[in-house]
Design a protein around this nucleic acid. Structure first.
Length: 205
DNA sequence: TACATGATGCCCT
DNA sequence: GGGCATCATGTAG
């Protein structure tokens, strides 16, 4: 069983900087969802940065009700619904008033594997079932039970929050930068960050 | 009020 | 390697 005790919740200043820095620094950190008696935890192995003035960022159109969190204070969860099926989880970056964020694209399950499998409708034990739990932004969000109604705007840095990001002392050996996935604008910018060789990183399409 | 569009994943071949 | 499910959001009218 994964132990909560060694977890140190990341402070707000961690997110109050360039999303590229935050994306890289988040690799190896732990995403945690605390339920009533369940604990879901996953090591972050893949992220993407969305910058201020970035044509591929939701904030590019200006501040709206939908993307408001990206413009707000750092360290909040930005959840959006995409393609009629999937939620995606992000964290806001940069000071209040400046838009920016990091998309969580994949994680390695550490705790609550059965709950994740149930949420994903996956039978554990079948081929590749563990990887399919959390490799991909839509999968990751579903495994952690993320929805816009429930989680958009939540603080990631409040110890009382049921959703937070923590450091458990793990250090990534090697990180790699690649182009982002599934976008058409500014598609050439290398703003995707992955833990080299980790099997839970989502595959290029 | 309608409609095109998209930071995708699944389930086939 | 390609079709498809499926809907919130923004923009036009």
């Amino acid at each position: 069983m994964y132990s909560l005790r060694k977890l140190v919740i990341l402070p707000t200043v961690f997110f109050n900087r360039d999303p590229r820095k935050v994306s890289r620094a988040l690799l190896g950190k732990v995403l945690v969802r605390k339920g009533g008696k369940t604990l879901l935890a996953g090591r972050i192995v893949e992220t993407e940065a969305y910058l201020d003035g970035d044509p591929a960022a939701h904030s590019f159109v200006g501040r709206t009700a939908r993307n408001d969190v990206l413009f707000g204070p750092p360290g909040r969860s930005y959840v959006y619904f995409i393609y009629g099926n999937h939620y995606c989880l992000n964290v806001s970056c940069l000071p209040d008033g400046v838009p920016g964020g990091v998309l969580f694209r994949a994680a390695e399950p550490l705790a609550g594997v059965e709950e994740m499998a149930r949420a994903r409708g996956i039978e554990l034990g079948s081929t590749g079932s563990l990887v399919r739990l959390t490799s991909g932004p839509g999968r990751l969000a579903e495994a952690f039970g993320i929805t816009r109604t429930r989680d958009n705007g939540k603080s990631f840095t409040d110890p009382k929050s049921d959703l937070f990001i923590a450091d458990d002392g793990y250090r990534v050996r090697k990180a790699e930068e690649t182009v982002r996935i599934g976008i058409t604008k500014a598609a050439e910018m290398p703003l995707r960050y992955v833990v080299a060789g980790n099997p839970f990183v989502s595959k290029l399409r």
